[in-house]
Nucleic acid binder design. Structure first.
Lengths: 311, 311
DNA sequence: GGAAGTGATGCAATTTTTGCATCACTGCAC
DNA sequence: GTGCAGTGATGCAAAAATTGCATCACTTCC
């Protein structure tokens, strides 16, 4: 899009924090880039960047302007996909920011299913944690975000919420496997494998353990569910995740889940439910493809989980 | 704004319906303009205009794209005013589409008051009727619209609603001037001066008269309230308007209203209240100046009229 | 059948953008 | 202090894009 180049350049400079670096990235000279920026600042009537000895940084006006630029790009993408739609097939690109759990089974399955009927739609997934996901929505780096627990900014619109009880996963022959529900005190003498501290599941577990005054034996901490799951193949222990990470496989006979492991819910009296929100930026018109995909996963979730809260 | 020229050109071509005419208006050659359009169509990947023997017309893709362009322009204006705001004084431009009644006293007073505290804000007013006002919001030709009675499209957000009883205006010495409230049957033998057919007040009156089977003696029809009011100085008759056209001057001792005339409300049992909605385009972020002005007039209305419905 | 309107296109003039070389400045390491 | 490596700004010539002229192909209307 030729008519957007200057704006794209400004966006890159803002991200790089340096005209020369941005020029490298854009494969032009710093001179040319510099002059484009000076020209736009001249047209706006005010500088957009502060000149620092080590580069440039957006000033307040620049912040406002760059936000405008990004929303223009996002809107242009929406318009393009809408126009492409006119010619029959649904094209487009969907950008999703999600926590690790939904990336395991739920999103791969959902995206595969969606792409089966809309092969011209492409996806980009970024794994990230709560605040980061919201930041991506704000900077229009993501169309949709799956956010665990608290929504921090008021610019985020929650399209749907899934409440999920944390599940305790263990080898089939674990002594706790006979119990239908795991109490928190059962965990006191067990070896625990916990997700890392910024994870939502971990925060819920930590506060629950603290309240009950249980000092857990944490033998391993990781931000990879896959790693923790595989670890259990070699060494008996307990780890925790929410059902969405298992694609609804709450019982051991779920074909898709790990055949050597079983999962049992933690007692809701001990540990509160976790909530996963599916969000997009408030006030934004989503690209056709993203809006359709959002519809799809909400429908999908509604059939899988009874606790879906539509909004 | 150099980086917007191509887009502005497309907008003008869409409005003019001819490349050559648009080129004249833009003070360039039709060749140059034509090529810019071809280039953009090439970048979009699809034509935006149908080539007709007598000129060009937007196709569906073009409609979508032009709507995008206009929203970009409106958003850029908002960003500029927001940036200008940083330097102290509130600058900006507010575009209003309104019916004739609010243009009489209410808007002039409101705008004058607003400009007294924000002299760097400029205004543009367009008098228009219901559908037209909504069309202007949609094409981003207006930031705010004062719409009488029904809202037709779902793209319009109603910021506030004023319910107003239609007033019957007459010379001080008219025989009906002694009555505090005018019944519809009182009008049967009177000379009436009515607003023209597309006016909201007229439509309400017409349907009320029809229902009561009263055949009015319409001696004059006009779309100018000022004309109708002045007519009453020369010839005794009745005409009708809502309080907002009189700046709240419901009683004859209102200094601002016409000293030779008095107004009396029609009986609500006979004639339903009219509603005037203050609207803007749904989902749109208003320019700072427009948003502030909107706040002001709503505050203003709330103190003047008890029947203001905030939203 | 001709006149008047439309948009498209080849080619040369013009304008704009770019790149090179260089300046002025700041922070950092020695 | 004194280079040194980094930054953004600027004059000038080359390269690229835009523009205007002349002209074509086409449709409508008289």
């Amino acid at each position: 899009m030729r008519f957007m180049t200057s704006l794209r350049f400004i966006d890159v400079v803002a991200r790089e924090g340096s005209i020369r670096k941005a020029a490298d990235k854009l494969a032009i000279t710093s001179t040319a880039l510099n002059r484009r920026i000076l020209q736009i600042e001249d047209e706006i009537g005010q500088p957009l960047f502060e000149r620092l000895p080590g580069g440039v940084r957006l000033n307040t006006a620049g912040e406002i302007f760059v936000q405008h630029i990004r929303s223009q790009f996002a809107d242009l993408a929406r318009v393009q996909s809408q126009i492409a739609d006119l010619s029959g097939i649904r094209r487009g690109h969907v950008q999703i920011a999600s926590g690790a759990d939904a990336l395991r089974r739920f999103l791969p399955a959902a995206i595969a299913a969606y792409r089966a009927s809309h092969p011209a739609v492409s996806f980009r997934l970024n794994r990230c944690y709560g605040e980061d996901a919201e930041a991506r929505l704000l900077s229009l780096d993501a169309d949709l975000a799956l956010i665990f627990n608290p929504i921090r900014t008021s610019h985020v619109h929650v399209a749907a919420t899934v409440r999920q009880q944390i599940q305790c996963v263990m080898p089939k022959d674990h002594r706790l496997a006979t119990k239908p529900v795991i109490r928190l005190r059962d965990l006191a003498s067990e070896d625990l494998v916990l997700p890392s501290a910024h994870s939502g599941v971990r925060q819920i577990l930590d506060s629950a353990l603290l309240r009950r005054n249980i000092d857990p034996q944490v033998i391993l901490e990781s931000d990879s569910f896959e790693f923790m799951q595989n670890f259990l193949h070699f060494r008996s222990a307990l780890f925790f995740q929410i059902p969405i990470a298992m694609d609804g496989g709450i019982s051991e006979d779920d074909g898709g889940f790990d055949a050597q492991l079983v999962s049992r819910p933690l007692d809701p009296a001990d540990v509160p439910e976790g909530t996963r929100h599916i969000c997009h930026l408030k006030g934004r018109v989503l690209p056709v493809a993203a809006a359709k995909f959002l519809d799809d996963i909400i429908t999908n979730l509604r059939s899988s989980y009874r606790d879906l809260v539509d909004q």
